[in-house]
Amino acid sequence: MLKHLCRFLITTLVLGLALPAQAALKVLATTPDWASLLNELGGDKLNVYTATSPFQDVHRVDAKPSLVARARSADLVVATGADLEIGWLPVLLQDSGNPKIQPGSQGYFEAAPLVHLLEVPSAVDRAMGDIHPLGNPHVTLDAHNIAIIAKALSARLVLLDSANAAYYAARGEDFQKRWQAATVKWEAKAAPLRGVPVVVIHRDQSYLCNWLGLRDVASIEPKPGVPPSAGYLAELVTKLTAAPPKMILRNAYNDPKASDWLSQRIHVPVVLLPYTVGGTPEAKDLFGLFDDTINRLLAGAK
């Protein structure tokens, strides 16, 4: 029995080592947003796997066996950082046995530390809910952040795969041009949203509100990650009936119950936002995500 097992072990090991190296750079992206950005910047030179679906709360994901398998073979991990993936990504990195993607090496890329983080708490205490000591990690929905992150990610791809440096540089430049133009267009289009009062569920629309000048007057979660109590909701209804917001923002991955309940009480529409690429049929890629988000907000603000 043992002899057979050993033979199996050795055969598998030899076969494993002898597998031909894949031409394309293997990338594990934690969210569909980063996967979309990688497709923009790396095209067919990258083989991108997305760890989460648009309908998952990225903070509450299991370190699934399939993800360990992907981390094992990855050349690059692209994560949000700022503790967003803290409940599962460290397990993947540790169990992968893959030196390329360990934090601190070139194959580990975090987006959030590159941009200005909002809501950095001056003191942290779990009595405030599941707060992130480094600041709000939901950085994607500000177009300026994407531009900054894209630039650094392009540079990282060049470092990792210098054979295709020119290709990445050209794609990066092209993306920046198109993104810049789109940003100008979005900002012009979203001008009527400035100052519009909205209610959010979790504090994951902060960057969007900050960018477009929406005023988030209340949050359905009293504290990050803490579901609302009946008492808190009643208080919210009283407060919002006196000064009604224009809309309630709900992300595709949020349960509709709480926002629908509030909507019926205060007679304010719920606006469904994709939050991430794939969250709505229109949000096919990063451009679609921003187009659709602004279109839906404008429709809701009418």
Partner: peptide, 17 residues
């Protein structure tokens, strides 16, 4: 040289930010 170029891009993006 390629690495230096990449480093430059990396730094310039940070400076731009």
């Amino acid at each position: 040289k390629a690495e230096i170029d990449a480093l430059k891009t990396d730094y310039s993006s940070r400076v731009q930010a």
